[in-house]
Simulated scan of single mutants.
Amino acid sequence: MESKNNTRVSVFLLGFSENLELQTLIFGLFLSMYLITFLGNLLIILATSSDSHLKTPMYFFLSNLSFVDICFTSTTMPKMLANIQKKCKAITYEGCITQTFFFTLFVGLENFLLVVMAYDRFVAICHPLHYTVIMRSQLCILLVFMSWIMNALNSLLQSLMVLKLSFCTDLEIPHFFCEPNQLVYLACSDTYLNYMELDLVGGLLGGGTLAGILYSYSKIASNICAISSVHGRYKAFSTCASHLSVVTLFYCSLLGVYFSSAVTENSHSSAMASVLYTVITPMLNPFIYSLRNKDIKRALKILLDRMNRNRFTILSKEVSFRICN
């Protein structure tokens, strides 16, 4: 079959359901989750940046993770919501490739930041006396910078590999965003190099970061077990409980998608499973980090009180201005 010129390929995101009533419910549900994700992570960023007591490596990495979570969900959710609102499933081929690039970038950054945060907890618990020397600000900035560079290069490589593919028909993707595996699956040209690259990168970056996290927590666990005091063990564990919860939620959902049964062309199971790590995890991260963290709760309370005072001041000035005029 003759392949089409990729610039003339039409791409359709089939989403979750054809039922109009169900689509209305899906729109309301996902819009709510997107707003919660955006506002929750934005509050974490504002709280950690405005409180001088939170100028530590752990909260520096947390604010970066919150920023990535906002970008991660913003890569896929607005387009899906717009398509439901307009009752349209189309996305341009260029838009699809752009979405693939940023999706790959931010899911990779999520991986890297989680392993960097695990390393931070490892140093804090296993080498507390050398923590300030090891986790200096220059190293923290370098770790985040290198994470961006490595994942940007990986995203660029994957996008270029997809651009080389040819498609015999218009693309009907049984997903709510342009997921790289789906594009490779629907291609009619040779995809051997694409699958090899996906497996290689997945093994090196995904497997490498997971191995780093498991190694860090194995050392943390052995160190905590060596503490004689029950209170000391609880205090040491509580410092990494939130991060461990986020890691478990993210990797369990991610591995559940990619190690499940092979995706078929007409199946929506992959789209439903992907919601766990593309939508649910970024939405829950602010709650996980704030509910058990007294410093974050205190910073959020101060931030909200300050915002309320500023709003009251602005309203008072408006009222005074109207009275005077």
Rank of each mutant, 00 (worst) to 15 (best):
F112I: 02
T48C: 05
L205C: 09
N266F: 13
N310F: 12
K297Q: 15
K297I: 14
N111K: 05
T191D: 07
V230S: 12
M196T: 11
L113A: 08
N5A: 10
L114M: 08
L43N: 03
P78H: 01
K235S: 11
L198F: 15
F101Q: 00
K164Y: 04
A236K: 02
A152C: 00
M161R: 01
G206A: 04
G15V: 03
D199M: 07
T169P: 06
G207V: 00
K86G: 07
T248F: 00
Y34R: 01
T264E: 10
I213N: 01
Q85E: 13
E18D: 15
M150H: 04
S267A: 03
H231F: 08
L39D: 10
F27N: 00
L143W: 07
E21H: 13
G108V: 02
N310W: 09
A82P: 01
S261Y: 10
D170E: 06
L291Y: 07
S290A: 10
S269Q: 09
N151M: 00
G15S: 03
N194F: 00
F102K: 00
T278K: 04
L81A: 08
T239Y: 07
M272P: 06
L42K: 09
H231Q: 12
A187W: 03
K89I: 10
S189F: 04
L35R: 00
L193S: 11
K301D: 09
N325M: 14
D120G: 11
L276E: 03
L315I: 11
H231P: 08
K294F: 09
T92G: 11
A118L: 02
D170G: 00
F61W: 07
F16V: 05
Q182S: 11
Q23C: 12
F60W: 14
N310H: 12
R306G: 09
N266H: 15
Y34F: 13
C252N: 06
S229A: 09
S216V: 08
Y192M: 13
K164D: 12
T76V: 13
F30T: 01
S245P: 04
T92P: 07
E197Q: 06
Q138N: 15
